[in-house]
Amino acid sequence: MSYEISRNIVKNELVDKIEELSGQNVFDCYQCGTCSAGCPVVEYMDIMPNQVMRLAQFGATEDLINSKTIWICSACLQCSTRCPKGIEVAKVMEALRSINLRKRVGTLDPNKIETEDLQDLPPIALVGAFRKLTG
């Protein structure tokens, strides 16, 4: 991946939105990588949690909004708990999901869950997934 860094794209409106929704200052991150090191599902992500923070600093918000990462994150809070700078990375992930969900973009269409799965799945899995993944 290569990125053009320019004065124009740093801190665009979407960065403000991410900061507002997450309550975090993305410029606090100093790229130690602790968040990615502890993330249990990092192997499935296209952009690692520390890279999410870095791209947010660069204003590369489109890449973040369209990433697979934000839909793989299971909000386990490991990153938030371990960040030495006290950044709640999980809240940044949630902000990125919410920006999509509020435009009705999500990864789970309730009508497409197989009947067999529906019979097995507990309410806790269904309601949780609807709230995090359905736009």
């Binding site: 249990p40 599902v41 793989i72 299971s74 909000a75 490991q78 899995a125 997934a129 993944l133």
Partner: peptide
């Protein structure tokens, strides 16, 4: 203390199986 994959069990079954 490691996450089991939680609600990803619906959309990302492979992730929860590996967890």
């Amino acid at each position: 203390l490691e996450c089991c994959g939680a609600y990803q069990t619906i959309t990302k079954k492979d992730v929860t199986i590996k967890r």
